[in-house]
């Protein structure tokens, strides 16, 4: 399998704080890669830097043969990089439909809105019932579904998800992780940051462990799932 995303020696700063200190990782086409580690290890900053949302960063980020570092966030999206941020970022005041429309506006593949809505409805029936409701009034789980739907209507090649299970009912979390598996089968590559380590590793193909702003361990998900010592050392709270 060829690398879809290659990150080499990536550094990032928030003001004077040097958050990422040389991150190296690779995501290959068709796999789910988990990025795990404690709070403050730099997982979210890694995704944000790959997406181009951090003001000061250095290193190499190559996506599908294109060097991303000099490109603004909206161009990175158009090249096929989808991102669902931790806080979901459902736009207040907009309806569910308008949030989805927003995801579709810059899509490279122009598909009729009706087709896209039908597609979303089959995957997320709950959203289909609430199309004209103000999105921010929905439950946390429904908002997370919307955030995922909004990021995927433009059919990104690589989807980065930040803590999708956070604050969501367990039954919905299981449903969501099944969906991620189906998305992978459908050809979407996923880079997943997740606090729920067991669940993430059970689904993923490979995993990177972060600590102190760098990658400290890299293994197959199954191997790491069985590696209690490493999980205990870097992931227990």
């Amino acid at each position: 399998m060829t690398a879809m995303l290659t990150v080499e020696g990536m550094n990032a700063w928030y003001g004077p704080s040097h958050i990422l200190q040389g991150v190296d990782l690779e995501v290959r086409r068709g796999e789910i890669v988990c990025l795990i580690g404690r709070n403050g290890a730099g997982k979210t900053t890694t995704l944000r830097t790959i997406m181009g949302l951090v003001d000061r960063s250095t290193g190499r980020v190559v996506f599908e043969g294109q060097d991303l570092m000099k490109r603004p966030a909206h161009i990175r999206n158009r090249l096929g990089l989808g991102y669902v941020p931790e806080e979901r970022r459902i736009v207040s005041g907009l309806t569910v439909r308008e949030n989805l429309r927003l995801g579709l506006l810059a899509s490279a593949v122009k598909r009729p809105e009706r087709v896209v809505i039908d597609e979303v409805a089959t995957i997320f029936p709950r959203l289909a019932e609430r199309l004209d409701q103000t999105a921010i009034t929905m439950s946390g789980g429904e908002q997370q579904m919307l955030a995922i739907a909004r990021a995927t209507v433009s059919q990104p090649k690589l989807l980065m998800l930040d803590e999708p299970s956070e604050g969501i009912m367990p039954v919905l979390v299981d449903e969501m992780f099944e969906l991620f598996g189906r998305m992978r089968d459908g050809g979407t590559t996923i880079l997943l940051v997740e606090q729920n380590v067991e669940l993430a590793l059970a689904l993923g193909d490979r995993a990177y462990v972060m600590d102190g702003g760098g990658i400290v361990h890299h293994a197959n998900s199954a191997a790491l799932l069985a590696d209690e010592a490493t999980k205990e050392r870097y992931c227990s709270v």
């Binding site: 997406m51 949302l53 603004p72 966030a73 909206h74 999206n77 158009r78 991102y83 941020p85 970022r89 736009v91 207040s92 005041g93 927003l102 995801g103 506006l105 810059a106 899509s107 909004r150 990021a151 433009s154």
Partner: peptide
């Protein structure tokens, strides 16, 4: 309301 999410969704 949220210029950053608009950028993330590919809009300049």
């Amino acid at each position: 309301r949220d210029p950053q999410i608009v950028r993330i969704l590919g809009i300049d």
